[in-house]
Amino acid sequence: MAGPLKAKALRNGEWTKVDLEDQAITVDGDFYLVYIQTKKNTESPGLATDEDGPNAERSWQLTSGAFSPSPKEEGNYMIRALVDYEADVPEIISPKAGVITNKDELEIEGKASPGLDVAIYQNDEEIAKVKADQSGAFKEKVTVSSGEHVFTAATVTDKGATKRSTPVKVIIDQTAPALTIDTPKKGEKTNKESLTVEGKVTDDHLDQVTVNGKKATIKEGKYSVRILLENGKNMIKVTAKDAAGNKTTKKINIDVQYEAPEISKLTPAENVHLASGESVKISFHSREKLDATFVIHMPLTNARSKLQNTTELPLREVSSGTYEGYWTATSTAKAKGAVIEVIVRDDYGNVTRQKASGTLNINEK
């Protein structure tokens, strides 16, 4: 590859150095340096050997025109190569460009010329200097604050520095999404088997919104998704997550009852005759804490019954689940076979109507 080159041997115990820089020698693997005696051995400088260290089995000698391994007992020939590595422009391989994270510390990793110093820059300011290992790998941990950061690197030698590496932009987002649950309201009662959960969400790097694990549709800062409900207490859990990994979770409970109340033991069970001033008792059993009313449906042939047909009269819960009320016949009321209908409503919007089997004969002889 180069040579032979003449050099003057030192005899003072120091290394004899031969500068080959002007030879522009480039290698990418193993190579050998050869010491050639130009005179017989008694007239040439001696070549020192290392007899104390482990034998590397990389020392050879040329005798009678052929190379052969030197005897192990002679040790390792003391020939060393001082190598300068070519200063290549580094490459940052981690983090990747465009990464969005919420971490306040990053590990910058990359590749550069083996054994050379690498300067790491953050937004054009040098923040660290690290030496690449023998494989060319380098890494360094750096602290970061919220916002955009551009990282570059350059190989640095005593002769100067290479160009900067390709910039890597990283976004640090440590702010969780702003989130509301607008529909339904906390503690709301409903008789629906499904409903649409709606609300608002705001984040610069929003990734998704889930409601009870179901991905919501997001449009213009609003999210919505339809979910199924179970009878009883239902917890609605909304989670907004951004690309950096920040999360906001909100929860509300609603009460669901989509089974309408049942009415039992409705009276009167038999027909009742009423004269003016006489009353009939109306009663039944159902769930407790219901809104209960009744209506008297007069026969269609009775024109004077219009008011009663459209008016609901209250029933009172006299004990748990037992409702009672009274209706008194007036002198102007007259009907044969008037029907009593009770109506119950719960807080969930369920309505049950039932007619008594006993009818009313009012002021009929």
Rank of each mutant, 00 (worst) to 15 (best):
M1Y: 10
M1S: 14
R11C: 02
N12R: 15
E14V: 03
E14P: 01
E21V: 12
T26H: 12
Y35G: 06
T38P: 01
E43F: 03
P45G: 10
P45N: 13
L47S: 05
E57T: 07
W60G: 10
L62S: 07
S64N: 15
S68I: 06
P71F: 00
E73G: 14
E74C: 04
M78L: 12
A81D: 03
D84Y: 15
E86K: 02
A87D: 04
D88G: 01
P90G: 02
I92T: 10
I93Y: 03
G98M: 03
D104Q: 09
I108A: 06
A112N: 05
L116D: 04
Q122R: 15
K131E: 15
Q134A: 15
G147M: 04
H149S: 07
V156S: 07
A161Q: 14
P167I: 05
P167R: 05
I172W: 02
K186G: 10
K189R: 12
E193S: 13
K200S: 04
T202C: 01
H205F: 10
H205D: 14
L206N: 06
N212S: 11
E220R: 10
S224R: 13
N231R: 14
N234T: 11
I236R: 14
K241F: 00
D242T: 09
N246M: 05
T248A: 02
I252S: 08
I254R: 06
I254T: 08
I254L: 00
Q257T: 09
P261Y: 00
E262Y: 13
K265R: 14
T267K: 11
N271S: 11
I282V: 14
F284I: 04
K289M: 05
A292K: 11
A292F: 08
M298G: 08
P299M: 14
L300Q: 12
R316Q: 14
S319K: 10
T322W: 02
G325H: 14
Y326K: 13
S331R: 13
K336V: 11
R345Y: 03
G349R: 13
G349M: 12
R353K: 15
K355P: 11
N363H: 11
E364P: 02
